[in-house]
Design a protein around this nucleic acid. Sequence first.
DNA 1: GAGTTATTAATAATAATTATTGACTTATAA
DNA 2: TTATAAGTCAATAATTATTATTAATAACTC
Lengths: 138, 138
Amino acid sequence: MHSFENTIQKLRSEGFKLTPQRLAVIKYMIGNKSHPSALAIHKELKRRYPTLSFSTVYNTLNMLQKIDEIRSIHVFDDHLNYDPNTEPHIHFLCSKCDMVHDIFLEQAEGIQVYAGEIDGHLVDSYELFFKGTCKDCR
Amino acid sequence: MHSFENTIQKLRSEGFKLTPQRLAVIKYMIGNKSHPSALAIHKELKRRYPTLSFSTVYNTLNMLQKIDEIRSIHVFDDHLNYDPNTEPHIHFLCSKCDMVHDIFLEQAEGIQVYAGEIDGHLVDSYELFFKGTCKDCR
DNA sequence: GAGTTATTAATAATAATTATTGACTTATAA
DNA sequence: TTATAAGTCAATAATTATTATTAATAACTC
């Protein structure tokens, strides 16, 4: 999800209709660094759209995943979280504050992931996930 | 879960009772490379223990996680899988055959994960997960 | 072996996500 | 415009993985 216009464009070209609900989810997600759950998204948007249903949130999220504008990540065991940044990057979960921090390869000294072939297997994508105590909580 | 005796010892010292159900789950998990789900474990063990309940499988798995004899991994969106290898290693999911392959750092050329500190955050553990086409399916 | 207590199986409960459906919009064409 | 067709919405029900409850049972201690 690189920009609002970009995403709108993509939706149009894929034949999706631009409804207020969808635009609200898109606007909420663009540039969002909090890796929200469907619950959090629904909770927040319900303020502006009191009739907004969970199904619509999920439908929109699944639609955005299909056109590669967001991705889902497994942070906790019982629900999914969503990230508008679909570029390869690393997630760090702080076990103190439960925040998920993004880490980009440039900032990741000591980390190297060659994602072509590994032990004979052909790699399409990877996910690197850290757990620990974040810099704010240390 | 390094060995049967080892695990038994650990259970005893933690005050857990050694029931046939628990021993069955432990035996099933030791050295198991298939990363089974609770469903798969239950299905398999039900043959020998027809009254075995799902709760018991989950209880045992959670207990084994608590004493660090197994770990849970997020392979798919809708359920957890379990791995008796608690040493740091990498998982590779083949999108063709759905098998999860273990990869150890020695075999992982081009992969380097320094797990001490990253971007100011203190690292406790990490998980590296690949998706692609495995060597058998290529 | 008897007593204590954790554990079991069965069942119900919880909670995230998905499916269904009928009313309602929107986009396009007449 | 207005009609029409298609897609989308909210509400609701359904599904499914996992956890909680509970009375009966089995494992450990003495």
